[in-house]
Each structure stands twice: as structure tokens, then as C-alpha cells.
Design a protein around this nucleic acid. Structure first.
Lengths: 203, 203
DNA sequence: TGTACATCAGTGAACGCGCGTTCACTGATGTAC
DNA sequence: TGTACATCAGTGAACGCGCGTTCACTGATGTAC
């Protein structure tokens, strides 16, 4: 009972580099083909390996997906930084900007959100939980912003937190289908017209 | 040059019923597994046919997808009916309600919107065009509603039309991942807080 | 009212090919002495 | 500074299985006479 964790096997720099290359290669493939439509042979070939070479670094296709999604979230969190009740919209603004800069990560997020609606999907639980956590956190930010008078007083906070996320997801879907549309402008219109409300137009 | 169209082959009632059963069977499969992840053998088995039996009614997997998407759109258009500038939100309200009643069609729409972002996807062109048409039509409705004073005067119509669609798509994604959330309430909050603006609270 | 016949509806087997995963293996790499 | 050795990194072949599509076929169905 003292040490249940499997011993973290030794790795060499070459191995770590290959492992990361596999993840980077897999992102656009999962994004385009979905989990079910993606093949390890395709990823292996793009990364210059055999399928067995990929499976030396990841025990299964599912474990590779886990790592891909973990890294996607990590990069997203790093890019958008901390929420700030004094400037409550900058957080989401950075999120929208990040999606625009990293098209492949944006496509991955959209694809996996769609696929993970299936309860049998390997990422169902983690994606659903990520949404819950995200909406909770946005709600808290909006609540603090509301107390500080930066968003209107009659905002329904539960619905508003869901709407922020809906607008962000929905604009991303439209932009992926037609990259000429202006996500930033549409998001600003939402902030101006819905969140801030009439008056006080400087946050 | 007089008659290029292929002669529409004769069909029997039994054949037409089977053809429709294949479409009905295919909807949830495409919705869960995506186009790439779906197999004709799976659909055939669920419909009580062989793969060759399915291909007697549809020349290819891609042609089956075309019919599935055509029927999805047809049902959606029938359910939400005509837009009316006097009651400009009823149109979208019925759309949200329809998604809630027809979970499989909602999942299909979400999955295909995600997959079709790939320019190589067989439905890329048609899905992108459907979005353009939808946003154009929403914009026209909002414009008429604005002239009639039913939505606020300072609405950015281009952005607003995109936002309506974003909210609808985004709420659907969240609801598919967690069916306990209240899409209708969130949508009403959006109508109340964004589209209508302060004052006049009876449309 | 019956019959010949064109066509539909669907089967069963096969086509070449790709799937995720396992396994025994070979050379490279780093560490301990 | 050199060497033995454990382990990593990755290959090549094979496993059973599923893929979309083609093809020759059989009975059922409706139509024309």
C-alpha cells in the first residue's frame, strides 16, 4: 500500500523530443478527422515513425488523445492568463485572440466538444467537466465585476456565464467555416451590447 | 442537349420505406461517430440489411450523408417556420425548442458543423453556405424588427446576426454535453439583455 | 383474369486496403564501477 | 578513461478484424397485353 504509482520510466532527450513531435503532429489530425476518424498509422507516417514507434510513447490511441487534450488546455490557459474583475472582459478577449492565432487548437476544441457529447466517447467526462468548471469560473468573475459595477446590475449571472461561453464557441465555429469573419468585432459587440449595458463605456 | 437528367428510376413502396429507414438509422450514427468514423456496415446492420443493400439505395457513403443532411435541414426549416418581423424572436425560440426535442438532429448539426470546417470534408461547401444563408436571413429579420422598433436602435446588425447564431450553436453544444442545463432560459436572457435592450419588455 | 416480362430490392462473396495492438528484436544511450 | 550493462527508442512482421465498393445473382413486384 505504500507505493501504488508506477515507477516513472527513464527517458532520454531524443525520446522526449519524439514524444512531443507526436503530440504536435496529432493535433491537426484529431482536429480534422475526430477521434474515431483518426488513425495511428497516419500520425506515425506524418511524424516519420512506424505505428509501433508511436505506441512506444503512448500505450494506446486513447492515451495519445488524453495527452493532446491536456496540452491543448494547458496552452489555452497559459494564453488567456488570469481573470481580473477590474477588466473582466480581457480574459475572454485573449481567449478569442488565441483561437484566431492557433487555428489548429481552435479546430481541435470544436471537434472534441462535438464528439464528446457521446457518453461513450473517451473524452466525454473530461470535456463535460471542463465546461462545468469554465462556466463556474466565468460566473465568479462576472459576479465580482458586477459588485464592482463593471457589468450591469440586472445580469442573470448563471445565464450570462453560459452565454459568454456560447458566444465564444459559436463564433469559433463560424470562423472555422469562414475565416474571413471578424470574431473580435462580434465579441466586442456582445460585450458592449449585452454585458456592459447602457452607460459606462470605458471597460 | 435536350435531356441530360438521368431518368428517375422506378421505385416500389417497400424500397422507399427501406430508403427512409436507412436515413433514420444513419442520423444518430453520423451524429455520434462523425462522417469519417461512421461505417456503412454499422448502419446496414442496424437497419437489418447488408452493406450492399444500403448501397442499392445510395450510390456511396457520401451520397447517404448528403441525403441525411438534406433531411435534417428540411425538418429544421419545417419546425421553425417563417420569420416574422413583428415577433422576431419566435423564429429562433422555435429553433431552440426543436433542438431540445430532437436530440439526435441537434447532435448531428453540431458534429457536422465541427467536421465541415475541414475544406476536404464532403459537406464543407454546403455547411458553409448554409451558415452564410442563415446569417443573411437573420440579419434581414433583425433589420425589419429594428425599423419596427422591436430591437434596439444601436444594434450592430452584422454582428448581431452572427451572435444570434453563435448563442444558438453554443448553447446547443453545452446542452448536448449536459442535458440538465436550461437552453431556453439562457436564450431568453440573451433576447432580453442583448437584442431588446432597455425599455419595451413585451415582445 | 391470366400471363409474360422488365425492373426493383436485396443477398453473398469477394476486391484491395487500412485498422489498433502485440511481440521479438536491434542498435543507441546513459550510468555505475 | 574505459568498459559492462540496464534500459530506452524504435523497427518489422504479424494478429484478427473492419473498411467502402463491385459484381453476378435471385426472388418479388408491378405493368402491359
Amino acid at each position: 500500500m505504500s507505493s501504488n504509482a508506477p515507477p516513472p520510466r527513464r527517458t532520454y532527450p531524443k525520446g522526449r523530443a519524439t514524444r512531443q513531435a507526436i503530440v504536435d503532429t496529432a493535433i491537426p489530425v484529431f482536429a480534422r478527422m475526430g477521434y474515431h476518424g483518426t488513425s495511428l498509422r497516419d500520425i506515425a507516417a506524418r511524424a516519420g515513425l512506424t505505428t509501433a514507434g508511436v505506441l512506444h510513447h503512448f500505450a494506446s490511441k486513447e492515451q495519445l488523445l488524453d495527452e493532446v487534450l491536456a496540452q491543448r488546455e494547458q496552452r489555452m490557459l497559459a494564453a488567456r492568463g488570469q481573470a481580473d474583475a477590474e477588466r473582466p472582459f480581457d480574459h475572454e478577449r485573449r481567449s478569442v485572440a488565441h483561437h484566431q492565432e492557433e487555428r489548429e487548437l481552435a479546430a481541435l476544441a470544436t471537434m472534441l466538444s462535438a464528439e464528446a457529447a457521446d457518453p461513450e466517447h473517451p473524452a466525454h467526462a473530461s470535456v463535460a467537466e471542463r465546461y462545468r468548471a469554465d462556466v463556474r469560473s466565468t460566473r465568479r468573475t462576472l459576479e465580482r465585476a458586477q459588485r464592482a459595477g463593471h457589468v450591469r446590475a440586472d445580469l442573470d449571472l448563471d445565464a450570462a456565464a453560459r452565454l459568454v461561453r456560447s458566444v465564444s464557441d459559436g463564433l469559433r465555429t463560424q470562423w472555422l467555416l469562414d475565416p474571413t469573419i471578424d470574431m473580435t468585432a462580434a465579441f466586442e459587440e456582445f460585450v458592449r451590447g449585452y454585458l456592459r449595458g447602457p452607460g459606462r463605456h470605458h471597460i
